[in-house]
Design a protein around this nucleic acid. Structure first.
Lengths: 352, 352
DNA sequence: CCGTTCATGGGAACCGGTTGCCATGGTGTT
DNA sequence: AACACCATGGCAACCGGTTCCCATGAACGG
């Protein structure tokens, strides 16, 4: 028996009860599945459910205490491949643990972020996962600390994933990866090939992810007793277009470098194209390295040497750790390792 | 006044009312913002709200008729770049229209899809957007038709986005792009260069997106009076790994082709690497084309000739059309155009 | 054959909000 | 000064479920 499509007539549990000739509580119990109900009753209830194509309102269930718990994932831009992989990990783990998962994308706007967190608090999300760098200003710390407090006081939990941690005392779960260390090792690898002037294509000047990578770049230089030329550090977005533009500019300005380290594989991709367009060979004339190890990195030509970040794992751990957290327990702070994956885009500097 | 972090004590509207010395209805009215309330009352309510860090429970609001409407976006894999772009469009438009947006990823599992749709129906989502190809079997049509009916009868709406449309009569909004046409034009372009044996790296054999592209491939041949060799049509996943593997296999089997058309840019990327590994030059020895025009396509070397699909637009239109739909009105069916973007990976076949 | 027990299902309170309706009291009008 | 009126805010019903508590009747034991 199919209902006519047309009028909107979502049916309630009372409609079902009426049709089955039982009370609403009985319907609830049949659907709940645990309470003992006679086979006959169960049968007629189930038939009524099918006839009316009834589904219990999830919001009503939630408010009554039953219902699927929810968890929110707030990122800057779902289009960024690394974010997408984290989102994947989060999604998988959330559904595995029986949670519904909301994904919000802030477009890098702090106000949106604030709004979303507030919205998720209203949804009574079990946890809110914030991911991606941000400006590490006192305002940021204060604002985020407040978020953490108000989520905690509502029985929820804030998770910072690849984000600057807050002052101790903030009720936050922090899942990081060794951002600076990865850059350090990568740049050390480049320097070990003999390069001395290494261009760094960084992110926005206040973006902590970008800054961490920049710090790694600097530290690797210092560890070799080198002081990098400040004019070799450029700033842009984490997009292939930014990489392309910056690289062209750098070439035009004749900065005199033999290697390029990009803050992101996307940036590296754009830079690579700019190098090719300038007729330069990689790594013959210029070496190039990226960061993130997105699947595509292997398909650039030459295959891109980069830093692998376990993004999916990061996402999975974020939800698992957050959901396992018992209020009152110590705040977790996990640090996942990164490693360089050596491919074909870095070689010795050209002999001259 | 900051609350102590520690105990979970989400406060209700009655707590606020108590603290402000008014009734719950007054609090609701102050927060609602439309009902006339004296300045003094408003002041004390607002203070209580701030003191308790109160946020109204979104689920309770929803059930009471107020509350933010919701909309669901169900895709196969958030990691696929084209899906990510659609998700982006959906997200933007949804928040612009004041809707909350849930993103679910099915991992290509039909059962998951079914589950999600049911879940969204329980959430009373205003619309459910299903995206990505699927097997176009009678079961599919029947199952999806049922989904459409039951969503419609609950006042919601099913949107099919880049998916096989159903029998007329199903209450669905369909937003398509010219999938087959794009492939047709692309392959015609390749054939016009003089290629006669064109390898097609397709998707899974029952996947409609893949099939549409395959049909375009065949049609372009027929339009020239050619009958393509069936052994030149290969099937795999829409991943770079599949492209890589298939390409190696094809090379090993010595299929004798001078051009390759991949069903996806991702597949093309893998294939390109395999070609390079075999020491072949593109497009000197073999021409290569993709489909989707993901941002990366420009950074492959040579830059990939491909078909542009307006994914973000597709997503935006899906939500707009769905939300504007008035029950009872005719079912919309939009078809967006695609176009070939010619870059450097297709050239004439090698002279011999 | 009667009393106790257990399986079963109904009534009602509750979850946390919104809103229609009505009582109250201060203000403006004549 | 009396009256009407309007601004304001409380009460209670309702949204759609869940679950505690209790009544009922059948089955079982003695």
């Amino acid at each position: 028996m199919t209902r006519k499509s047309g009028e909107a007539n979502r049916s309630t549990i009372r409609d079902v009860a009426l049709r089955a000739g039982v009370s609403a509580s009985t319907v609830s119990r049949v659907l709940g599945g645990v309470y003992p109900v006679s086979a006959a009753t169960r049968g007629s209830v189930m038939r009524a459910v099918r006839d009316l194509d009834y589904v219990a309102d999830a919001r009503a269930k939630a408010i009554a205490g039953a219902g699927t718990p929810t968890l929110a994932f707030v990122l800057e831009d779902i289009t960024g491949p690394s974010f997408a992989h984290m989102a994947h990990g989060v999604e998988r783990e959330a559904t595995r643990l029986g949670h519904l998962c909301l994904v919000c994308s802030t477009e890098g706007d702090v106000r949106h972020e604030l709004e979303f967190v507030e919205m998720m608090r209203a949804q009574r999300a079990a946890a809110v996962i914030l991911v991606g760098g941000s400006a590490d200003t006192p305002e940021y710390r204060e604002r985020t600390h407040r978020m953490a407090d108000s989520l905690a006081s509502a029985g929820s939990r804030l998770v910072l994933c690849g984000r600057p941690p807050l002052d101790p005392g903030a009720p936050v779960t922090v899942i990081e990866y060794d951002n600076e260390g990865g850059a350090y090792t990568l740049v050390a690898h480049v320097l070990a090939q003999g390069h001395r002037r290494v261009l760094f294509l960084g992110g926005r000047a206040d973006h902590t992810t970008a800054l961490g990578r920049e710090r790694g770049y600097l530290a690797a230089h210092r560890a070799r007793g080198l002081t990098p030329d400040e004019s070799l550090v450029l700033h842009g977005d984490f997009t292939r277009d930014a990489g392309h533009r910056l690289m062209r500019q750098a070439l035009e300005d004749d900065l005199g470098f033999t290697a390029v380290v990009a803050a992101t594989d996307m940036v590296a991709a754009g830079a690579l194209t700019a190098l090719h367009e300038a007729g330069l060979s990689v790594p013959g004339d210029v070496s190039l390295a990226g960061y993130d190890d997105i699947p595509f990195a292997r398909d650039l030509h030459p295959a891109l040497t980069t830093v692998h970040v376990p993004y999916e794992e990061l996402g999975r751990l974020a939800v698992r750790t957050a959901l396992e957290h018992t209020p009152g327990a110590a705040d977790e702070h996990l640090l996942l390792g990164t490693h360089v994956v050596v491919r074909d885009s870095v070689g010795p500097p050209p002999a001259r």
